[in-house]
Design a protein around this nucleic acid. Structure first.
Lengths: 190, 190, 190, 190
DNA sequence: CATGAATGAGCCTTCATTCAT
DNA sequence: AATGAATGAAGGCTCATTCAT
C-alpha cells in the first residue's frame, strides 16, 4: 500500500491558498484547486474530509507558519519591550513577504467557515508571549492589565499597516514601521 | 404603472445583510435573499444589475449609515482630542449596536467583491475629520504626520474590540473602552 | 379611448424581425424586442396574445409583403414562361434586397413555432400563379403534372441561390440568375 | 477510474436530436435533454463544453452519417449521370428514413448556432462528387460550369421533396422521385 | 492510493407573462 | 391604451461530493 504523499497534500494547500487569494472563496472550487494541484478532485478527499475541513487545516497550517516565523528569534531572556517589538516586526515582515498568507488571513480571520476551536488551537503557539506579558504586568513594566486589550494594540495596527503597504496606499518602510512600534508601545506602556 | 417600492429595496438590503452575516458570502444566494425578503428572485434584478452591484450598493449604504452615526454629534468647534474620542466612541457603539453591520464590514472590508472606487466613495464622508487632523498636526497638537498611520490607530483597535466584545471573549464596558481611547490618544499624541 | 397605434405595432414587428435575424430566436426575448421598439413589454401584449401569436402574425406579414412584391408586375396576360420567370426573379430580388426577411424565412419556414394553418393561409396569395400553371398543363405547355413538384423547382433553388449570394459564397449576378431561370424552366417544361 | 461511457454520449446525441425536432431549439433545454437521456445535466458537460459545442458536434455527426450513407454505394467507375442520381436518391432515402435528421438539418442548416468552420468541415465528405462533376464539365458532359449552381439543383429540390413527403402534402413515391431526378438532370445537363 | 466519470442540488440570471396604476 | 414593476418558472451551467475502476 502506498503512503499518503506529502507533496500532494502540500500542492493542494498551495493551490487552495493561491486560488482563494486571487479569486476569493467563491472562485476557489474544489475542481479548480484540484486542477491547479495536478490532482483529481477525488484525491483531495483522501487527504481531507471535505472542503470545510481542508480550509480549517489550511488555516491552521498558515497560522503555524506564522508563529514559527515569529518565534524563530524568540528566546526567554527577552525583555518585554524586546518581546513586543520582535512580535510586531516579525508579524509585519511575515505578512509583507507572504502576500498569499496575508490575503488568506484577512478573508478567514472573521469567516464563519473557520471553527472556533480551530482558532483557539491556533492561539496556542503564542503562550510564551502571553506569559511574558503577564509576568511583566505583575512587575509593573506595562500599564494595561487586560491581555487581550494589549494584544489588540500589538496586532491590529500592524496587520492593517501590512495591508496598506500591500495595496500601495502608503509605503510602510522601516521608518514608518518603527514609528508604529513606538506608538503601540506608548499605548501599552504608558 | 406601478411605482418602485422602496420597502422592497430595503427588505432586500436587510435580508442580504442578515444572510451574509449568518451564513457568509457563500451561503447568501440570491434565492435565499429573495425568499427572506418575501420577493421573487427576479425582483432583485429590478433594483440591482447583478449580485456584485447589489453588494457594492449595500456596502455603500452601510458605510453611509456609519458615517451618519459618527457625525451625528460632530461639530466644527471640537478640539482634536474631542474629535478623535467622538470618532472612536461612535464607531464602537455603532458596531456594538449594529452587529450585522459589524459582520458585514469585516467580511467585505478586504473583499475583492467591493470595487476600489466604491471604497473610495465611502471614504468621502470622513473629510471633516481628516481636515481637523491635518490642521492639528500643523499646530503641533498631534505627533504623527502620516494621516493614514494615525487613522489606523484610531480605527483598527476599536473595530477589533467591538469584535471581541461581540464574541464574548472580553466584556468591553465603558471603562475598558475609555482605556482604549486613552491608549490610542497616547499613541498618536505622544 | 385611444386607438391602437399602428406605428407601435409596426415598431414591434420591425424590432422582432431584426433581433431574430441578428441574434436568433433564442436571443429575441420579449424584453429585448420591447426595448428596441421603445415600448413596454406589457404593450406587446396589447397587440398580440402572446409570443407565439406575435411570431405567427409576423410570419404572415412577411409572407404578405413577399407576395405583394411578386405580384406587383403580374397580370393575367402573362404566358406561363413569363409568369414563372417573373415569379423567380421577383422572389430572388425581394430576398436579396430584404436580408432580414430572408433570414426570418429560413429560420421559420420549418419551425414548429409557426402553425400549419398560418402557413396555409400564407399560400393563398399565390392562387393566380397556381391557376396559370394548371391551365398551362392542360394546354400541354408544361411537362410536370404535379403542381407541388413544379413549385419546388421554381422556389427552392432560387431561395438557396439568394442565401449563397448573401453569404458571399458565390456572386449571383443577372447572368447567373438567368442561367438558373433557364435550368428551372428546362426542368419543368422539358 | 471509470471510462467515459460512449453509450452516454450517444444517448445525449439522440435525446438532443429528438427534442430539437419535436420542440424546436428553444424547447430543447439541457435539463430536458439530460432527463430524456437518463443522465444528469452535469454529465453533458463532461462530454461537451457547452450547449453550442454540443449542437455543433451533433451537426457534424449527422452530416457524417449522411455522407456515409450517400457514399455507401459510390465507386469511382460511376458515370456523372449515375453519380448524380445516386447522390439524389441516397439523399432522399436517407432523409425519409431518418426523419429526425431531416428536421435537425432544416433547423440548423441556416442557423447562426452552427459555426462556419464546422459547416465547411462537414462539406469535406463530398469531395469525390465534386471532383467527378468538374471532370465531367471539362469533358462537356454537363452544361453548367458553376459547381455551386449545379449543387443547388441537385440538393434543394430533393430536400424539399423529402419535407413535402414527410408532411404528407404529397406522396413522393419512386415514380415521383424519378421524375424529380430527371428534372434535375435536365436542368444541369441541358 | 489515486483517478476521471458521474451526479443532484444549487448557482446567478433571464424568461414570458401579469399586475396595478 | 400604455406602462414599469413584479413574478414563478426555467434557462445554462458549476458546485461539492461520491462512484467504480
Amino acid at each position: 500500500m502506498r503512503q499518503k504523499d506529502e507533496n500532494k497534500r502540500e500542492a493542494i494547500y498551495q493551490s487552495a491558498l493561491e486560488l482563494i487569494t486571487t479569486e476569493g472563496l467563491t472562485g476557489a472550487s474544489m475542481a479548480k484547486i484540484a486542477k491547479k494541484a495536478h490532482v483529481s478532485p477525488a484525491t483531495i478527499y483522501i487527504y481531507f474530509e471535505n472542503k470545510e475541513d481542508m480550509l480549517n487545516k489550511l488555516y491552521l497550517m498558515i497560522k503555524g507558519e506564522l508563529s514559527d516565523y515569529i518565534f524563530r528569534d524568540y528566546h526567554n531572556d527577552l525583555s518585554i519591550t524586546e518581546g513586543m517589538k520582535l512580535y510586531m516586526k516579525s508579524l509585519f515582515h511575515f505578512m509583507v513577504s507572504h502576500p498569499f498568507h496575508l490575503s488568506f488571513h484577512e478573508q478567514f480571520y472573521n469567516s464563519p467557515v473557520i471553527k472556533q476551536e480551530v482558532k483557539e488551537e491556533a492561539m496556542a503557539g503564542y503562550t510564551p508571549l502571553f506569559n511574558l506579558y503577564e509576568q511583566s504586568y505583575r512587575e509593573g513594566l506595562v500599564k494595561i492589565p487586560l491581555l487581550e486589550l494589549a494584544g489588540v494594540y500589538l496586532t491590529s495596527p500592524i496587520m492593517d499597516l501590512a495591508k496598506l503597504h500591500r495595496s500601495g496606499a502608503i509605503e510602510v518602510n522601516e521608518e514608518v514601521l518603527n514609528e508604529a512600534l513606538e506608538m503601540s508601545l506608548r499605548a501599552i506602556m504608558g
